[in-house]
Design a binder for these strands. Structure first.
Lengths: 238, 238
DNA sequence: CGGATGGTTGATGCGTTTCAACAGAGGTGG
DNA sequence: CCACCTCTGTTGAAACGCATCAACCATCCG
């Protein structure tokens, strides 16, 4: 169904270099400043809920999502979890890492990734100013996204956070038909992204459904009928 | 007084290039990979609560804090405010910006800054791999800090957030005598950093005082008597 | 069909916010 | 130099929003 069926038979892998025979060179269009990366990319796949790397692991690779979705999270000793990012097809993550990863990356759905060895990326940065600019630009955009996220967690109510979340998603798939968005992540993931409980997320979604602002044909899709109302709900421009 | 008395007679300035006659070249030690920046830095000063740049302004400069403290914040239309970063002496901010600033920077106390024109910084990045590496490294550290901040706002209680905040500060001034830390920012700033109200911050501090974990000789200093207890309070390693 | 997984809804409690009063520090002018 | 005023911080009481606990429902799959 949905985005989770990219792989007919998903292969497990705990480390890209060990991934199940998927070291074929990366293919396909890549129109951004990272185009030169295509030459050094290898492809790797991870099944749903598998760990791509753990907090504390040596940072060997940077990644691009080819298909599926990835979550970056931190977990407290008592189990509380906070998701910092969701990465969708076309997004890069693990950029600019030196030493250890500061967070854990997991596959939200079955995922196909392009992997770039850190040393080879550094080489490209030294050779090609365009790659360096793209790296800095993407890091800066991530930082900017994180700051918007801080506003959501620090200063918005539950309903505002859910509305903001839907607007962020619709913004990132502005190629899709109409106002239907895929939600590859489950409710618990949404809750952990928004700093709420799963029940509160459900109630906020139900509120929005009751007021006809959205509808949910199934748990992994949402139709946004009234985007203006969503913007008004999270009374800010983010 | 405290850190706010760096300038005997602080000058107001709304833009570094317009700063009151303080375009002298930067001086002093700078042992990091950004050492080459010294050649292109000019000095500028801002009085307490003055805006250094606004969200939406063209990003002309990057900055280093020489003295005082700076806050980076976003404000919602209805006045709710979230502070994303405090920058202390030695910290850089506004790095890697292209186009517009994504947030507002204000002087927490009277502040002295080194300013680096964006174009000249880019030139240095192209010429010197060390500068590029330092830029990427610092952006990545900021991103990592922002993620820890997300955990605080999304998953910690009020008391845990305040304890974490104190521990972050003591970590950043690990040169100071004993366990006394300066709090250049007011209670409202702390509240806006932690996603709480000023009253809740006060109450959490009072709790910690009552249990002898800290004491506050004045509102702009805190003595941490029991750092282990603080760590235990925010039951996580961050 | 039966169990497991994930999602939804309801009732109650707690933590934080809100509203309000007050206290202390700093600055100004008489 | 002190009275006064303002700004910031602190404490208390009440209200509210979200979390918690619990039951129920839907879908998927063996």
């Amino acid at each position: 169904m949905l985005t989770a069926t990219v792989l007919a038979n998903p292969r497990l892998a705990t480390n890209p270099v060990l991934a199940t025979g998927t070291k074929s060179p990366e293919r396909g269009p890549s129109e951004d400043g990272f185009a030169p990366l295509r030459k050094i990319g290898t492809v790797s796949s991870f099944a749903r809920n598998k760990t791509i790397f753990n907090e504390g692991d040596a940072a060997e690779f940077s990644y691009k999502v080819i298909a599926g979705a990835v979550r970056l999270c931190k977990v407290l000793p008592d189990g509380r979890r906070q998701i910092a990012f969701f990465f969708m097809p076309g997004d890069y993550f693990g950029l600019g890492q030196a030493g250890e990863h500061a967070y854990t990356a997991e596959a939200v759905s079955d995922v196909t990734l392009a992997c770039y060895a850190r040393r080879r990326m550094e080489g490209l940065c030294d050779e090609l100013p365009g790659v360096r600019k793209e790296l800095v630009s993407r890091l800066h955009r991530d930082l900017s996204d994180a700051q918007k996220h801080l506003v959501m967690l620090g200063r918005q109510t539950a309903k505002e956070r859910v509305a903001s979340f839907l607007l962020i998603l619709v913004e990132r798939v502005r190629a899709k038909d109409g106002d239907t968005i895929d939600l590859p992540m489950g409710r618990q993931d949404i809750a952990d992204y928004l700093g709420l409980t799963i029940e509160t997320v459900c109630r906020a979604l139900s509120d929005l459904k009751r007021s006809k602002v959205i509808s949910t044909p199934n748990t992994h899709q949402a139709v946004l009928h009234d985007i203006a109302a969503l913007h008004k709900t999270c009374e800010n421009e983010l």
